[in-house]
């Protein structure tokens, strides 16, 4: 396997997906390394997780609530303010577009 771009991936997502004893939510957390304690998957860990979720900010709770319902068609988006912050500059996406050759003149948003 090639270099992991600096992030420490300790769980292989391809395997995690089919471990039915782990809930999808936990899979994602483990994979992204958000889990604190991963050595024992016991009650201790679960307790800790509950503990964490309760103290989380409202934003992530909102996200949890949205993802909990797998029936919704529209994916989760952050609030308008945060999206605005993120996309003030559209440079990140430039390589995704082709067409109008006038990139350089209109650079300044």
């Amino acid at each position: 396997l090639k270099a992991l771009n600096g992030d420490r991936r300790r769980w292989d997502i391809a395997k995690l997906i089919y471990m039915n004893n782990i809930s999808p939510n936990d899979c994602i957390k483990r994979w992204k390394g958000e889990d604190v304690d991963e050595d024992h998957e016991s009650e201790i860990e679960e307790e800790e997780e509950d503990f964490f979720q309760k103290r989380n900010g409202t934003a992530s709770n909102e996200k949890d609530a949205h993802e909990g319902d797998l029936e919704t068609f529209k994916p989760y988006f952050e609030t308008l303010d945060r999206l605005m912050q993120k996309w003030k500059k559209t440079d990140l996406l430039k390589d995704r577009f082709i067409g109008k050759p006038a990139f350089s003149n209109e650079d300044d948003a």
Binding site: A14, L16, I17, Y18, N20, P24, C27, I28, E67
Partner: peptide, 23 residues
């Protein structure tokens, strides 16, 4: 790869017995 994706692949495996490979 989010919660919905994982659930989708699990449901597919349950019904069709097919696993997806990620590379």
């Amino acid at each position: 790869i989010d919660e919905r994706f994982i659930q989708l692949l699990r449901d597919i495996k349950t019904v069709f017995g097919i696993e997806a490979f990620l590379k």
